[in-house]
């Protein structure tokens, strides 16, 4: 089992779009794949047409331990399942704080699923918190969608500092450019300059494209309704690269 976190401190950068589209590609290759929607906004849950509800909420889940199983929903696609979001996740931080070894709770919950899934994607809420620390410690790889602006770069450096400061070592850092708009001067500059400075930066990037926005209308992964599209191809290239890094 490989756990892949999709994370950024900021919202609206394409985390959920990446989590859903990459997880779909993984499932299509025959890997048993699960998305855990950890964001109370429940965007991934919405895209997969599942109603957000986790009976008992997160307090119950953390207390009882290994019962994630009962909450998993099959998506409309072979090999792709979802652990839906619930609004009570807003209090997740507090819950985790009450547990022993608070930073390792997520990993403890995920471990029993290792028999059932080859890949688990964590669609994370924005912010740095105990939830995110849990995610960092559980994940084998961390995908970090980053809009190519100087501001985004600052937040990426913040994240790196946090990881190093908290000695989170065992996770592969995979920042990639997201929502790239070739009409913007700054985007082009960053695209050119940064690979040299950040060797961990993924070679593939996701362009800004209206097909991606339409996921909200179709409520399905991109490849389902726009089989051959610029953004669709970009996700496939990114996925191939991610597999190579894990």
């Amino acid at each position: 089992m490989r756990i892949i976190g999709v994370y950024n401190i900021k919202g609206g950068v394409g985390k959920t779009a990446a989590a859903v589209n990459l997880a779909y590609l993984s499932a299509r290759e025959g890997y048993r794949t699960l998305i855990w929607d950890l964001d109370p906004q429940a965007a991934a849950t919405f895209y997969l047409r599942v109603k957000p509800e986790v009976k008992g909420g997160s307090r119950e889940m953390i207390k009882r331990g290994n019962e994630l199983d009962d909450h998993i929903k099959g998506s409309d696609f072979d090999n792709l399942d979802l652990l839906p979001a619930d609004f009570s996740y807003r209090n997740m931080d507090l819950m985790l704080g009450e547990a022993k070894k608070p930073a390792k709770q997520l990993l403890r919950l995920l471990r029993p699923l290792s028999e059932q899934y080859d890949r688990i994607f964590l669609d994370c809420p924005p912010s740095i918190s105990l939830v995110s620390e849990n995610i960092f410690r559980a994940a084998d790889g961390l995908l970090i969608p980053t809009i190519p602006t100087t501001l985004s770069l600052r937040t990426y450096r913040q994240l790196v500092e946090f990881l190093d400061g908290h000695r989170v070592n065992g996770v592969e850092r995979m920042p990639f450019f997201s929502m790239v708009d070739r009409r913007k001067r700054m985007h082009l500059d960053m695209l050119e300059q940064l690979p040299g400075r950040y060797p961990e930066l993924m070679k593939s990037f996701i362009p800004y494209a209206s097909e991606v926005e339409r996921m909200g209308i179709h409520r399905a992964p991109l490849s389902v309704y726009a089989a051959r599209s610029v953004a669709g191809d970009a996700y496939e290239r990114l996925w191939a690269e991610v597999k190579g890094r894990l």
Binding site: H71, I72, K73, G74, D76, D81
Partner: peptide, 9 residues
């Protein structure tokens, strides 16, 4: 006739 359940339903 075969029923193929979807997990969680």
């Amino acid at each position: 006739l075969r029923l193929m359940p979807v997990r969680g339903y």
